[in-house]
Each structure stands twice: as C-alpha cells, then as structure tokens.
C-alpha cells in the first residue's frame, strides 16, 4: 500500500464528466495524499483541467464522487458543494491556467481579498466594521501580517502597493499562488503554475512549492507540462490520456511506464528504449483549450 492510499487528503472515485457527446473524463479514480505534491499530467486535451474544474466546483461531474478529508477527520463531498464553499469550508484553493488576478487592485489588496471570509466574520458582517470595532482592527492587522508573510515567501514585498496588472508574468503567477495560500487551504490546486516561466522563475516556483509542502500542512495537486518541475518535486504522479487514467505512481514508476511513454510520444512499445532519454527533455505543450466557464 502506498502512502497516498492510506493518508488521504482528497479522493476522486469513479468520476466521469461528459460534455454532450464528448466524454472528457472517463471513470477516473485517484487519491491525493496528505503532505504530498501530486502531479496530474497528460498530453493536451487529456482532461486535466476538466478534472480540476470538477474538484474545485466549477463543473459538476456527470458521475462519481469527490471527497475532501480535513485534518479533523471531517469529510466534504465536493461534487455537491457550491464552488465558493469549496475554498471556504473544504479548504481547497486553486489557481488558473490563464492567470486570474484582481488586476486593478494592489498586491496587498489581492491578498486581503483572499482572506475575505475570516475578515468578514471579524467585521461582524460589515456592521461592526462600519462602527470601527477594535476586534476588527485586530483581525485586519493579523490579515496584513499573513499577507506580508506570503509576500515575503513569494518575493513580492517590494511590489506590495503596485497594481497586480502591473506585475510581470512570473510575479503574477506567484501572486496568484500567494492569494490562494491566504485562504489557508488544506489542498492547493495549481493549474500549470510553471507555464510561461523562465528557468530561474521555474526554480523559484519549485522552492516555493517545496516550502509549502514542508511548512504549511498543505497538500498540492498540480497540472504541469514542464517535466523538470514534475519529476523534481512530485511525490506522486497521475497520468491521464483521453480522459482515462493510464498510470498512477511515484515519478520513477511513471517515468518507466510504457503506456505513459506511448501516450506522450506516440510510439510503439518496442521503441521504449529509444525514447527514455527523450522523456528527460521538456515536454512542452501549447496550452489547453478547456477554460473554466
């Protein structure tokens, strides 16, 4: 028995997603373990972003069950929850393939919006805040501290008062992760976090993700095309092709799986030897067409 099947953070069971005549995800089951970095990989159009959208509530799966387990032993059935309740109650946060920031708001404001729910409670649903209660001021101070912490971790402190749309691409990616972390998630879902990053930024991202795994008690589920990132930091890899799971295991197992190699490179099983070296290289994709509604 592997670790992710024993200490489960999220389990997807027999999930299918159908768009009209297209079966985008077919009978998919996998587990995400606590304290793991789990990578969801697959060629373009394999259904990875669809799986993400189902987990985070933007799509409702046609069939199947998605369960989030909290540290306290509570269970949330994500496929039955409204999308905004998933980060709020089940503590599953996400980022987007095409970055979605609050462009006209500053970096600090973006991180404050990330802490909306606890702050809303502290402001007694605004009524206490209007009157200027000291309990709210205290909560706001703490929220700023958390925002500062994540700005420091992502190296954005020096841009705290700049508009998010003003940041370069790599920093916008980091800000989106920081904003998701400000919701204090138990599971962080990253949709191609390394897309469009240069090698140095990619390195920084790896360090950030490893930090989150080590320090934050947060599991990470990520979609990634950059095999350097995937192989370097993942503990567990799930491979999709045409909506079906074709492999599930440690990076080492997946790397040597003939089905995976065939799916990625489209060669017959006899040629496996030749392509093993090639899989080391970047398998870059031109981005997917599936976007959240």
């Amino acid at each position: 028995m592997t670790r992710w099947n024993e200490d489960i953070l999220l389990s997807v069971e027999r999930m299918s997603m159908r768009f009209g005549g297209l079966l985008a995800v077919d009978d998919l089951s996998f587990n995400v373990g606590k304290g793991d970095i789990t990578a969801l990989i697959g060629p373009n159009g394999a259904g990875k972003t669809t799986v993400f959208n189902c987990i985070t509530g933007f799509y409702k799966p046609t069939a199947g069950r998605i369960t989030a387990h909290t540290l306290e032993g509570e269970k949330f059935l994500l496929e039955r929850m409204d999308d905004f309740r998933i980060p709020k109650q089940a503590k599953v946060a996400r980022t987007f393939q095409n970055i979605r920031l609050f462009g006209g708001m500053t970096v600090l404001e973006n991180l404050m919006v990330g802490q909306h729910n606890p702050l809303m409670k502290a402001s007694k649903f605004t009524f206490g805040g209007i009157l200027g209660l000291s309990s709210y001021k205290e909560a706001e101070k703490q929220a700023i501290e958390l925002a500062k912490y994540w700005m420091e971790k992502t190296g954005l402190t020096y841009r705290a008062d700049d508009a998010a749309a003003d940041l370069p691409y790599g920093e916008q990616r980091k800000l989106e992760i920081a904003r998701a972390m400000c919701t204090r998630p138990k599971l962080l879902c990253l949709d191609e976090p390394a897309a469009g990053l240069n090698p140095r930024e990619s390195e920084e991202l790896n360090a950030l993700l490893l930090h989150i795994r080590a320090e934050e008690d947060t599991g990470i589920l990520l979609i990634e095309h950059d095999m350097n990132v995937v192989m370097e930091i993942s503990d567990h890899i799930v491979v999709l092709d045409y909506g079906e799971k074709i492999a599930d295991g440690t990076p080492e197992e997946v790397r040597n799986d003939p089905k995976v190699i065939a799916a990625y490179l489209g060669v017959s099983d006899e040629d496996v030897e030749n392509v093993e070296q090639q899989i080391e290289q970047d398998v870059t994709g031109s981005g997917e067409t599936e976007a959240p509604k």
Partner: peptide
C-alpha cells in the same frame, strides 16, 4: 459609509467582483 466600506472586506469584495468574478469564487467569496 462608502469610504468606510471600501476599506472593509465587503467593499474589497465589491471591487474584486468588478475585477474578476470567477477568481472571487475560487477564493471563497459568495
């Protein structure tokens, strides 16, 4: 009241809604 609200989570949520509704839902804003 408007100026006060802008500095409260509710006012920031309004502005965030104007900026990107889907992102709002992804971080738990109703």
């Amino acid at each position: 009241v408007t100026n006060r609200l802008r500095r409260l989570p509710l006012g920031r949520a309004w502005e965030a809604l104007r900026e990107d509704e889907i992102a709002c839902r992804s971080i738990g804003l109703n």
